[in-house]
Amino acid sequence: MISIDRVSKFFGEFQALNQVSIEVMAGERVVVCGPSGSGKSTMIRCINQLETHESGRIIVDGVELDGSREALNAIRARVGMVFQQFNLFPHLTVLQNLTLGPVRARGLSEPAARELAMHYLDRVQIPEQADKYPRQLSGGQQQRVAIARALCMEPGIMLFDEPTSALDPEMINEVLEVMAGLAESGMTMICVTHEMGFARRVADKMVFMDHGEIVETGPPDRFFENPESKRCQDFLQKILHH
């Protein structure tokens, strides 16, 4: 479903991605971890073209991201994204946040979009907040709205960019629960996260990145019990023992 083949990306002199290759099958749940600045976010941002790659190929759902407008529009309609900082639209109500994309980009009628929005608000368990503004919600609720907003585009792939890193500890679980529910429903997911409990529970594949490279990939059992590389061992030790 997603094929990333020897992709490199520079920010000026700094090499953010170095010959990164990874395959993600339909329905597969991939968790990406690694130290900050290791290129995790950059990699998933390349998948929906929030960043453009300089070399290598990215093919999503049969469409090659070649920098053309058509490819970009085809892809971003099929790939949903959830951000660390939620990025809800503060001047719109929860419901308006959810219906904007379906109405303007997918051409749904207002009533159909509202129905769709309420369906997904139910799914993230906050239908009662539909008419509130984002700032009236807790961080966990805001992030669940952001997930519902992405789902309203009915994407085939969901990208999560450290979705719980900006949350207070007591709100992390409610967001992870929604994500786990989504994983169970068979959604193709790539999650950048340091929530290793969540990773163990839902991941089909673990990816460890460092200095812009994919250092290690593998199923969670082997990844956590028996990591091959020294860098990955060190990293896991640091985040699992505190």
């Binding site: 529009n73 971003r76 951000f83 639209f89 994309g101 303007r104 980009a105 309203c152």
Partner: peptide, 20 residues
Amino acid sequence: GQYEAAHSISLSYGDTMRFV
């Protein structure tokens, strides 16, 4: 982040400006 969110829900440049 507002532009990125608009991008991620497929809004066109015009709609991003007008609504977001």
